[in-house]
């Protein structure tokens, strides 16, 4: 591998990895506070991409109930993206109210949250198909303004090319990660959130409304999921209602690798999985997925708490 190839893969891996990180953080936030994996998170990712698309482009195809729909008003992309993420956050809040809180209140088997969140995912994905079909939708490149499609620079004699979209995505992800880090580490809100995650009973004794913080967490989680979906959508297109499924599963690998419930762990895990995907030679691309899961299996064997996680938590 030449230096240029190495750099190429590195940049590429970090860019993909940063989206994984953002997406996986959505899982992590909910896990850290409720101790469950929200299987509906992949569906929120998909929904977010569709919502942003609807507001930024708004052209729909020939299938589904809304066939031929063309939304007359289009918002500038940054506004649409922000609204798309907020709406995804609200959907996530709705999911908590409909599928998670009733379970907690009724004292069901905690594992049932897996089933109910799976049910929500099924509803979301099929509702998308019901309304706008399975067609592929895609953002025109102009949404990011008048940019060059790729950035080229040379190292010695060889040339490194990276798509501008990926650089932008990387930038957005970093900005979000830094603000999120600040929010959680430095603000009163973050402190309270961590207290709830640490021990809900104590937190409620301290006067923190646990249920409200759970809602906040779901909002943040959905926001991040919708953001990741929209960003991936701008880079690769929104490839049907199921396009979040692969990310949903990959995201689970990320959070385990980094350490369940660990926020810096999710970021590290995301970057590592992104890099692995970039560095697997194309001839073995068929085994790409297997490589991340094999790594996941191995990590669990030697260090079940993940790279940055604390010792085993007895949660589902």
């Amino acid at each position: 591998m030449t230096t240029a190839q190495f750099l190429q893969n590195l940049l590429n891996g970090i860019s993909i990895g940063s989206v994984y990180a953002i997406f996986a953080l959505g899982y992590t936030l909910v896990f850290s506070i409720l101790g469950i994996i929200n299987f509906a998170h992949g569906a929120v990712f998909t929904l977010g991409a569709y919502l942003t698309y609807a507001m930024a482009v708004g052209q729909f195809g020939i299938n589904g109930l809304l066939s031929g729909l063309s939304i007359p008003v289009q918002l500038p992309f940054p506004v649409a993206l922000l609204l798309g993420c907020i709406l995804s956050g609200l959907v996530s809040v709705l999911i908590e109210r409909l599928a998670f809180r009733p379970l907690r209140n009724r004292g069901g088997d905690a594992l049932l949250a897996l089933v109910s969140s799976l049910g929500v995912a099924l509803v979301t994905v099929n509702a998308i198909q019901y309304f706008v079909g399975s067609e592929i939708y895609s953002f025109p490149p102009e949404i990011y303004g008048d940019i060059k499609p790729a950035i080229t620079f040379s190292i010695g004699e060889s040339v490194v090319v990276i798509r501008t979209v990926q650089v932008i995505i990387f930038g957005v992800c970093m900005a979000v990660l830094v603000s999120l880090g600040f929010l959680i580490a430095r603000t009163r809100f973050g402190k309270a959130l961590r207290a709830v995650a640490e021990n809900p009973a104590t937190a409620s004794l301290l006067g923190i409304s646990v249920n409200r913080f759970i809602l906040y967490t779901f909002f943040l989680s959905g926001f991040l999921g919708g953001l990741a979906g929209s960003l991936v959508g701008t880079s690769f297109g929104v490839a049907g209602p199921y396009f979040g499924v692969t990310y949903g599963l990959q995201g689970i690998a990320v959070i385990v690798l980094g350490g369940l419930g660990s926020i810096p762990g999710s970021v590290l895990g995301g970057i590592i999985i992104g890099l692995i995907e970039a560095f697997v030679p194309p001839d073995y691309s068929a085994y790409k997925e297997a490589v991340s899961f094999a790594l996941l299996f191995l990590i669990l064997m030697v260090r079940p708490q993940g790279l940055l996680g604390q010792s085993q938590i007895q949660k589902v």
């Binding site: 190429q8 590429n12 993909i16 990276i162 880079s235 970039a278 691309s285 068929a286």
Partner: peptide, 11 residues
Amino acid sequence: KFQTTDSDFTT
């Protein structure tokens, strides 16, 4: 080679 599930083809 690539996979139908791939979306990034930089390599």
